[in-house]
């Protein structure tokens, strides 16, 4: 089974001064599956993301990414742009971080930097307009347009990203992350601020990314309609530790999870559940 795990987080520790934000957290995300990381506010979910994507250097533990070809990459040792370039991990943020002054299409073109960098022979072939470079640029535009089409923004390709509606910006961010051709896509609250219809559309988009691209997805989400509907596996955190994991159904019925969310202790939660059923 362990060979099927694309991401293995092994006893991850993250301390900020005296505060332990993540304490000996271990979990794994399966290849070509959607794994959700949930928990009350302040549970340490985003800290885990920041460790995975190289923003923080963990105080301890290991984060391993296993590529399809059998290569294993220690993510906690990479940083910065290498996370995308070598490890092929992409992420989005809780707050939207598009390049607002650039068009939707340009946003997706920046994400293909690495492919274009190779084709441009470190800029110089690009400056003289070599045919191989033109072909690569054309392919990049095609890929960008394909993704714009999939998120329903093809008609807005030349509009500044900052002028798009909120829900459109969210989808454009996911499209941009996918343009880096990642093996693992990390989404930090992709449904935040979306209405019911929009989050339904998001579910379809994420499922199609999993099914068609075969990209593994790790997401943080508070919107339970998203988590329950599309996740294959759910990991629940509270106060920096894992308190439960399993299928969405199993997690939903776990008294420890309910207790964490309601802020009650375990006995009270069981009592609430029993009185409810």
């Amino acid at each position: 089974m362990s060979s099927d795990h694309i991401l293995t987080v092994d006893r991850l520790m993250m301390r900020f001064g005296g505060i332990v934000a993540v304490n000996e957290l271990s979990f794994a995300a399966e290849r070509r599956k959607i794994t959700a990381l949930i928990g009350p506010n302040g549970a340490g979910k985003t800290t885990v993301f920041n460790c995975i994507t190289g923003f923080y250097r963990p105080s301890g533990g290991a984060i391993r990414l296993a590529h399809d070809d059998g290569r294993t990459i220690q993510l906690e040792r990479l940083g910065d742009f290498r996370i995308t370039k070598q490890a092929k991990v992409a992420r989005t943020f809780q707050n939207i971080r598009l390049f607002p002054g650039m068009t939707a299409l340009e946003n997706l073109m920046v994400a293909q930097h690495n492919a274009l960098m190779r084709a441009s022979g470190l800029t110089f072939l690009g400056l003289i307009g070599a045919p191989s470079w033109r072909a690569a640029e054309q392919r990049a535009i095609e890929l960008a347009r394909t993704w714009l089409d999939r998120v329903g923004l093809l008609s807005r390709a030349d509009d500044a990203a900052g002028n798009l509606a909120y829900g459109d910006q969210r989808r454009l961010e996911i499209a941009r992350a996918m343009c880096t051709e990642p093996v693992l896509l990390c989404l930090d609250e992709p449904a935040a601020g979306l209405n019911a219809r929009e989050s339904g559309g998001l579910n379809e988009l994420l499922l199609s990314i999993r099914n068609e691209q075969g990209t593994s997805i790790l997401l943080i989400e508070h919107d339970m309609s998203v988590v329950m509907e599309i996740s294959d596996h759910v990991v629940v955190m509270d106060y920096g530790v894992k308190i439960a994991e399993g299928t969405p159904q199993a997690v939903r019925d776990d008294p420890k999870v309910i207790a964490a969310y309601l802020g009650a202790d375990e006995e009270e939660a069981i009592a609430v559940m029993e009185s409810g059923t």
Binding site: A90, R97, F99, G101, V110
Partner: peptide, 18 residues
């Protein structure tokens, strides 16, 4: 494009591989 991206959000540009 890379220059404009770095101008607007360096962290995000780095995350996209720039």
């Amino acid at each position: 494009r890379d220059m404009r991206a770095c101008e607007q959000d360096q962290t995000m540009a780095a995350l996209l591989g720039v």
